[in-house]
Amino acid sequence: METYDAIRHFADSWGLLAMAVFFVGALFFILRPGSKQIADDAAIIPLKDE
């Protein structure tokens, strides 16, 4: 039972912080300047006829 309590305590504190940091990082990565052109280029790849 001590292992469960330790893992739960970690998830409640540092795990939540890690998920929040990852979420903010993902938002920054998606909304950074210049990413629209890269996303548009990637979206057209399946439609290109080579």
Rank of each mutant, 00 (worst) to 15 (best):
M1C: 08
E2G: 02
E2H: 08
T3P: 00
T3L: 15
Y4V: 10
Y4A: 11
D5T: 10
D5F: 14
D5Q: 13
D5S: 12
D5M: 12
A6C: 06
A6P: 00
A6W: 08
I7L: 15
R8H: 09
R8M: 13
H9C: 04
F10H: 13
F10G: 00
F10A: 11
A11S: 13
A11N: 13
D12F: 08
D12E: 15
D12I: 02
S13Q: 12
S13T: 15
G15L: 10
L16P: 00
L16T: 12
L16V: 15
L17V: 15
L17R: 13
L17G: 04
A20P: 01
A20F: 07
F22T: 13
F22W: 04
F22Y: 03
F23Y: 02
F23M: 10
F23H: 02
V24Y: 01
V24P: 00
L27N: 03
F28P: 00
F28C: 03
L31Q: 05
R32Y: 01
R32G: 01
P33D: 12
P33W: 04
P33H: 07
P33L: 04
G34E: 02
G34L: 04
G34I: 02
S35I: 03
S35M: 08
S35W: 04
S35F: 06
K36L: 13
K36I: 07
A39P: 00
A39L: 11
A39Q: 11
D40T: 08
D40H: 06
D41E: 13
A42E: 05
A43N: 12
A43E: 07
A43Q: 07
I45N: 03
P46L: 05
P46S: 06
P46A: 06
L47S: 12
D49T: 11
D49F: 10
